[in-house]
Every structure is written in structure tokens, then in C-alpha cells.
Design a binder for these strands. Structure first.
Lengths: 213, 213
DNA sequence: CTCCTTGTTGACTCATTAGTCAATAGATGA
DNA sequence: TCATCTATTGACTAATGAGTCAACAAGGAG
């Protein structure tokens, strides 16, 4: 489908891709102008439409490319994680995600935006694209690590996994925003996030109420 | 500023407002056409620009109007809540929010969208608008209801409030989506949400691990 | 009825943009 | 060298949309 584009020399491909990523993540689908893309990338309008046929296809290609990049990077790093304790592992995984989210922040922004607010007429494509990502680190897998024998009878494993993921993701997102606003170093926010994560994990593990209630 | 619009007969005002809300919430700022608004509302293009000067002002006016409507409605209902127990109260409040979110779903969608993804050049206005909403049901207030004497020493009140709000909001949002997708009744999703909330509250109160660990 | 004010119209301008296509440049092979 | 094919160009089209403005309508006030 995009063979003509793909057989371009890597250097030129990268130049075009990075301009597109910048433009789309900055101004969204509608407001991004193909004129601006072509002039910034130093190519003609004709050739862009020759490669991708239309703006919609270009956008889908770029979003999918970003999704893949992020996914690959996260998977690569997660594969190294050996920790078997559920809570420790979730923590490590979430900190990896945070790092990647910062390293690929434009890509993350673009994919998040595209999935949450698909441009008119792309709802189906985005759903399809999202599915490719769902299973790249399944909750099922985490679920298996949770030792059910240690859980209280009222605590269903799915709820524990869900609450934990939700809480940790919220914490890391908060710090990502801080990182982007000010100029704290990555190491610093990871350290802060790590401490806060520990406290929330304690809360989830042992609750907030004194046991004699 | 918008005196000319505001002194219109209520009926005509409502007609215009509701068309704008529909269009903006459906297609977002950029894609919404003032031509379409005027023709659907049965008014001329000239008069729309006479009332609001430009599209940006119109959008801000509509978003603020929606924000106010939602806020007023929630406040009205929350004022009736007498429950003093923190967890019970948070639950009631969140279920009220869920009801209002469903009743005013277009308005909610519009405001959420506008705040999360402000159209180019409206970032400041949106921040300002958000601030008006922040304190309409402060976490501070909820904080006061949390009896600190009952908490374990590791559980900081802010974290308990935060985790609770986050969890419950996520649950209600999940059910709102279900409601919008299928055709379950409001009563039914509120009942389901209520049960699930109870389980998460138990988890937050007493944790998931058996105490002898 | 006439003058004035205020509300309202919609055809028009001007800028922008996705997408096209005839023409050109460059490469390949005979 | 010439012929053929592919890659690339950029001026052009057609559509759309925000914002303007001269003109018209309505409703008093005198």
C-alpha cells in the first residue's frame, strides 16, 4: 500500500515522518496542513499524495507508526523485568511506561489523542488500532502473579489489579505533566514517583482503617 | 459583552444555544461550521457575528454556559446530601455526578473536551474556566470528614481521599459509557455502579492482604 | 406620516486547503 | 545517443469557511 514511501532511503523517510509527527501532535488532524508538512519536509505536495493517496491515510499511517514505536520500546524494556512479586512488578512496569512516555512524548500524545478523539470518519480504524495495543501487556498476565492465597476473601484479584494499575498510572501521569511543565530531571521525577507509589501500594495492600473497626 | 444576545427572548436563546452545543460537542471547535449553526438555528450569519463577534468568543461562551449548567445542577443536588460518614458521602456524591453527567451528556462532553484539548490559542481561557469549577466540591471539604483517628498511621488522609475519588470516578465513567453504548436504564447502571463501589470501598478501607503478613 | 434607532439579512470577499495533473527531471537499458 | 519508464514537481481547481457590510425591516417617538 505504501510501498513507494517505504522504499525511500531511511534518512528521507525519517525526515518526513518526524515532520508529520510534530505537526499532527501539535495541531491535530484537522488543523494540520499538508502544505505545511510538505514545505517543512522539503518535498512537493504531489509526492506526498502519491505516497499516501490522501490526508486520512497519511494520518493513520503516522499514528500506527507511533503506536508501534512506543509499543516496541515498552516491550523491549519489560522483557528485562524479572521481578515476580505482583506489586513490585507493577511498579517497575509502570515506571518503564513513564520513561518511555517521556522519551516518546510527541508520539504518545499523538496516539492518545487519536484514540480518544478520532477525527470524523476514523472511529473504526482507531478502534482497530487500539486492539493491537491492548494485549501488549495484558492484565491477565499480571493477574496470574497475584497470589490469591494471600488475599482477603473480599478482595477479588481483578479489582486489586485494576485499582493498583489505575492508581499507579495516575501518579506517573501527574509527574509526567510536572516534568513537561518545569525542568525537573527524569531521574528526579522517577524517584519522587517511586516513593509515592510505595505509599499507595501500602494503602492498597493494608487499607486505611485500623483493623479493630 | 454579549448583552445583545442575552436580552433575546428565552425561547430563541435556547434554540441557538442548543444548536451550538450539539454542533460543537459533535464536531469540535475547528470542524464546526458557523454556516451550519446559523442555518440550523434559523438565523442569519450576520446576527451570529453581531452577538458574539467571532467564532472563538462563541465557543468560549457556549463552553462556559455548559460548565455553569452542569456545576449548578451538581451543587443543587449535593446540597441535599446529609450523610456525614466520609465513604458513604463520597459514594453519594459520585452517584449524583454520574446522574448529572448522563442528563447533561452533550454539555459534559463539550466541557471535558474543551478543557483537555483547548483549540489553538485558547489555552489560557480554558485554564481560567477550569478554575471556576475546581472549588465547587473541594477535596478539602471531604478531607475534613475523614476521621483521622480511625486511620492507620501509614495512611495519609489526602492519599485516601485521592485514591477513593479516583477509583469511584473510574467506575462511574465505565458505566456511563455502557449506558451510552447500549440501552440499559439509568436506574440499572446506578444500581450496578453502587454495588461495585461498595466492593472498592471495602478494598480501600481494609486492603487486600491478610493481616498476618 | 416621517425620522431615527436598532435588529437582521445574506451575498460577498479573501484566505486556506485537500487533492489533481500535465509537465519535467532522472535513471536505466539498448 | 536515444527511447522508455519512473519519480517528482508545483501551479491549478474546487470547495469551504470566517468574517464584513451595504441594504432592508420593524418599531417607536414626535
Amino acid at each position: 500500500m505504501y510501498a513507494n514511501f517505504e522504499k525511500l532511503p531511511e534518512e528521507k523517510k525519517q525526515a518526513i515522518l518526524s515532520v508529520c509527527i510534530e505537526e499532527f501532535s501539535d495541531t491535530g488532524f484537522e488543523k494540520t496542513s499538508t502544505d505545511r508538512i510538505t514545505s517543512r519536509a522539503g518535498i512537493s505536495k504531489g509526492i506526498l499524495f502519491h505516497y499516501f493517496k490522501n490526508k486520512k491515510n497519511l494520518f493513520l499511517y503516522i499514528v500506527d507508526y507511533c503506536r508501534q514505536q512506543i509499543g516496541d520500546q515498552i516491550m523491549k524494556e519489560i522483557k528485562e523485568v524479572r521481578t515476580e512479586d505482583f506489586f513490585e512488578r507493577v511498579k517497575e512496569v509502570i515506571l518503564i511506561k513513564q520513561r518511555v512516555q517521556i522519551e516518546y512524548y510527541r508520539e504518545t500524545q499523538l496516539v492518545t489523542y487519536a484514540v480518544l478523539h478520532p477525527p470524523a470518519g476514523m472511529e473504526e480504524e482507531m478502534k482497530h488500532l487500539l486492539q493491537k495495543n491492548v494485549d501488549y501487556y495484558s492484565e491477565e498476565y499480571l493477574n496470574k502473579l497475584l497470589d490469591k492465597d494471600l488475599l482477603q476473601e473480599h478482595a477479588s484479584p481483578e479489582k486489586v489489579v485494576n485499582l493498583t494499575m489505575m492508581a499507579l498510572e495516575q501518579i506517573t501521569n501527574k509527574y509526567v505533566q510536572e516534568y513537561q511543565a518545569n525542568t525537573i530531571s527524569l531521574a528526579e521525577i522517577q524517584q519522587k514517583a517511586s516513593l509515592e507509589i510505595d505509599e499507595y501500594l501500602k494503602l492498597i495492600k493494608y487499607g486505611c482503617m485500623q483493623s479493630d473497626t
